[in-house]
Amino acid sequence: MKPPATLTRAAATRLLAERLTTEVVVSNLGQASLDLQQIADRPLNCYTYGSMGQCSSIALGIALARPDVRVVCLDGDGSLLMNLGSLCTIATEAPRNYALVIWDNEVHETTGGQPTATAARSNLAAIARGAGVEKALEVRTEEELRRAYDRILREDGPFVVNVKVATGRAEGRLDRDVVGHARRFKRALAELPVR
């Protein structure tokens, strides 16, 4: 039996938000974006609302286009499982400014909590290593998460950090201004001077 996850997605999002300065954060559709909007809405957040599975690829495109900016992607286990090939592309392109953080609650939370493959035998950090991402971590405690954040915000990546989080839906409603948020993000990133 695996120990139950004690970290919550909201607490893990809050710990990241405390550390953010000029990083880009790309968040997965549903719960990851809702938590991020409610805890730390900012123009350099890139929310996604559809295209399930594509969050890590969108973040990769940003990281390749702006190698001077650190890009943190907040994906979900169900969504990443839909686009596992993305891990191979991340490993091949190997952007140093890229970190993929996975909220792995082992269920499809947004659709009602149906178990994903990580509830059974699949391990996303091991899959990432198999894809060729050397810095692939699994995190279960707040202390481990703090250390992981310190690394992804300072060290060269690419990183994959699989965070085991408890199930549970965020309160409130997502602001679904899809076009407005995309434009706000594009403008904010364009205004960030190239270093």
Binding site: C46, Q54, S57, I58, L60, I62, A65, A182, K186
Partner: peptide
């Protein structure tokens, strides 16, 4: 579709 995501990110980053 991975290319769709990647190029959408690139456009949001100005390319």
């Amino acid at each position: 579709e991975e290319g769709v995501g990647l190029l959408s990110g690139a456009w949001l980053a100005g390319r």
